[in-house]
């Protein structure tokens, strides 16, 4: 079997498709001594230091293919542990159980991950097993993708880049010694305060697959597409960066109006193959629009924070701050891909 599939339109720097995740994790760990590999399936990343006794633990998890998400956000002031699955496949139940157990410092564990059916099933099963062992858990789901369901079905929305803000808020509050109820409350508050929309320019390819995960004409884009290629709102010819940013902001602000005088954090996120230069062009326009509306930007994030391998495109997230969320956003944190 020829593992170097050069007939594919997407070349990859890999050895064997089936080794993709394990070899990626090996390199991530070698480059980051702050992380440790753990769990029965060796698919849990945790902080090198064991969870502090009495601190609420925060466990996340998800499929591979989105670095820095999910594993990259394990660190002080953020996640304690993260279970990881194969590319675009949920982490197995055993890894979810291990991630929760390793995050437990006696004060319970918040499971904080994106709203995808498979991930939910696996974490729910793991939580049931561990509740029987006496570990208290709460679950909060990232549901920030406004293109994935209408506002009246907001609980059905998928979690995308905006989950970062929930990690930050919950992580900071947990470090301060807050209770599980409090940490879960603030995580949900951060999710509720965050909206994201994405735009895709080109697809990606799962390493074990022969074909890209969707087909799109060279001159077309898809507004609202999900991070695994889930269908978006419309598909049409490429427009200018400003026209795209204008529509994304218009949709975000229609979904969650933000009053003049408000303070927000903005994440302009690259999906993997889009250059930072283009992200800054989008950010420039985003800043203009928000400034014109009298909205102040706090701690902007521009870069590749949640990707879909070699997919080209970007997402914009708005995180509406109040005093509590702003304080938590600015609290110290350190992981391989984000330092505050």
């Amino acid at each position: 079997m020829n593992h170097l599939r050069f007939h594919s339109p997407m070349k990859k720097l890999i050895n064997q498709p089936t080794h993709y995740v394990d070899e990626m994790l090996a390199g991530l760990l070698l480059a980051n001594p702050s992380l440790k590999l753990d769990g029965g399936s060796q698919r849990v990343i945790r902080r090198a230091n064991a969870v502090r006794s009495g601190k609420v633990g925060i466990a996340s998890g998800g499929g591979s293919g989105h670095l820095p998400l999910f594993t990259g956000y394990v660190g002080d002031g953020l996640l304690d542990t993260c279970s990881i699955g194969n590319v675009f496949e949920g982490p197995n139940v055993e890894s979810c159980e291990d991630a929760i157990r390793l995050a437990h410092g006696g004060a319970g564990v918040l499971c904080l991950y994106g709203n995808y059916g498979g991930d939910r099933m696996n974490f729910d099963m793991a939580c049931e097993f561990l509740e029987a062992e006496g570990i208290a858990t709460r679950t909060v789901l990232g549901t920030d993708d406004i293109a994935s369901a209408a506002p009246d079905e907001a609980h059905k929305r998928r979690g995308v880049a905006g989950i970062l803000y929930a990690y930050k808020a919950a992580g900071a509050l947990a470090e301060s010694g807050a209770s599980l109820e409090e940490v879960a409350r603030v995580a949900q508050k951060a999710v509720d305060a965050t909206r994201t929309i994405g735009v895709a320019l080109s697809p990606c390819r799962v390493p074990t697959a022969n074909t890209p995960n969707f087909a799109i004409a060279p001159d077309e884009i898809e507004m609202g597409m999900g991070i695994h290629g889930e269908p978006g709102i419309w598909r049409a010819k490429l427009k200018t960066a400003d026209a795209i940013a204008d529509e994304m902001l218009e949709r975000l602000l229609a979904d969650r109006p933000i009053a003049s005088g408000s303070r927000v954090s903005v994440l302009v996120n690259g999906l993997g193959a889009t250059p930072l230069e283009e992200l800054f062009i989008l950010y420039r326009r985003t800043h203009q629009i928000l400034s014109e509306r009298g909205i102040t930007i706090v701690q902007p994030l521009v870069g590749n924070y949640v990707t879909s391998m070699e997919m080209a495109g970007a997402s914009i997230s708005l995180h509406l701050l109040d005093a509590e969320l702003e304080q938590l956003l600015l609290a110290p944190a350190s992981c391989p891909f984000w330092k505050v």
Binding site: G40, S41, G63, G85, N86, G90, P91, V93, D119
Partner: peptide, 18 residues
């Protein structure tokens, strides 16, 4: 069931384990 839960995180696998 435990064997399945350590072999895959896919929805079909987890349903079979369930």
């Amino acid at each position: 069931a435990r064997a399945i839960m350590s072999a895959t995180g896919s929805s079909l696998g987890t349903l079979l384990a369930t």
